[in-house]
Amino acid sequence: MHINAFDRFHFHDSFIHRLDPRIKVVVTVAFILSNAILPDGSWLAFATAWLGLLVVNDLSNLGLGYSFKRSYIILPFILVAITAIFSPLGNPLAEWDLGFVTLIPTDFGLVRFFSVLTRSWLSVQMAILLVATTQFPDLIHAFEHLRLPRVLTTIIAFLYRYLFVLTNEALRLLRAREARSAGLPGQKRGGKLIWRTKVTGSMAGQLFLRSYERSDRIYNAMLARGYTGHLRTLNPHKMTRADWLVLILSLFVILFIQFVGWVR
């Protein structure tokens, strides 16, 4: 089985795809930071930010709705924020008596809730665009050149490379379990919980050992090609004038969004 579905990169060619990955990382982080700084209820600024997102979607040749369609990922977390509606800081709007607890939604709470949601929704879309237009290895290179510790970027590179190999191995284990998980009519299927977790735990242990032994072989393969404990990579990216221009322009846009948010 192939789990290439893991790769969120979209093979399109566009202006955004060709940008230096460092620029994209910096702009994405700046955009998310900007959303976090915007005050609650600055709907105009949120709307401006969203317009910016639409422009990026369009420039990436992904279609205007691309990032929107994939932003559902934050939905499960909304549950957590719902409680903000009942913030005690604002004016009560209603009073719901549920018997064991009385819930009082407030105007402040509602604004807070929707602001949190909007911020999250805008931020996740930018992150979606980042990985859709940047190959993951290029992202790793970008982090390397943005001075992240080498050990960490190397671990991430290995993680990315073997994510696919090991996940396939895990899936094979799962399928082997599936294939032997027969059920007889009238019998309760699947055994006791303890037994089931023991099986799962053994699978995890099995996976661990296979991974451990694999890391030995990989280490040998690295040694065979001259590894001495210090990893070297080339920098395949050079900042062009267009890259600088985009960086400056984007930061101006973000400043403008802040301006819209704070000046009323």
Binding site: V151, T154, I155, L159, L166, S215, Y219, M222
Partner: peptide
Amino acid sequence: VPLMGIMAAF
């Protein structure tokens, strides 16, 4: 280093 990388994937 490779061990930690593979363990992360694990």
